[in-house]
Every structure is written in C-alpha cells, then in structure tokens.
C-alpha cells in the first residue's frame, strides 16, 4: 500500500479528505523547489504587507 493511502483507512474523517502523494511530499522539502517557493512567498507577503500599511 502506498504511504498516502495508509491513513485513509484510519478514520472516516481522514477518508473524506485529500492526502498528498510521494511527489507532493518530496517537493515540500526539495531544496531547489523550496528556494524558488521561498522567493515567490516572500514577494507575495511583501505585496500583502505593502497593501496593509
């Protein structure tokens, strides 16, 4: 059984939601991708901060 499928069987609450697969999980800690996301998130946050002052 794939890791993301294990928890679906643990409760009805878990069964009715979405659980990330191995690719999505790997990307969360992939340094290259996360450096890119770090830049994007910071830009988005700076826009929100500038709109709020």
């Amino acid at each position: 059984m794939k890791q993301e499928e294990v928890n679906f069987g643990k409760s009805d609450q878990f069964n009715l939601t979405m659980i990330p697969g191995s690719f999505a999980r790997r990307m969360r800690t992939c340094l290259i991708w996360q450096f890119f996301r770090f830049t994007v998130i910071n830009i988005k946050m700076l826009i929100v901060v500038s709109k709020s002052h």
């Binding site: 990307m27 969360r28 800690t29 992939c30 340094l31 996360q34 450096f35 996301r37 770090f38 998130i41 910071n42 988005k44 946050m45 826009i47 929100v48 709109k51």
Partner: peptide
C-alpha cells in the same frame, strides 16, 4: 490573488 497558503520547507525558513 492575495489569499494563499502552502506547506513546505520555505515556510519554515521564513
């Protein structure tokens, strides 16, 4: 456009 969320290492660095 300005309401978003994501989970990852980048968030931890921030």
């Amino acid at each position: 456009d300005y309401t978003f969320g994501e989970i990852g290492l980048a968030g931890h660095w921030i």
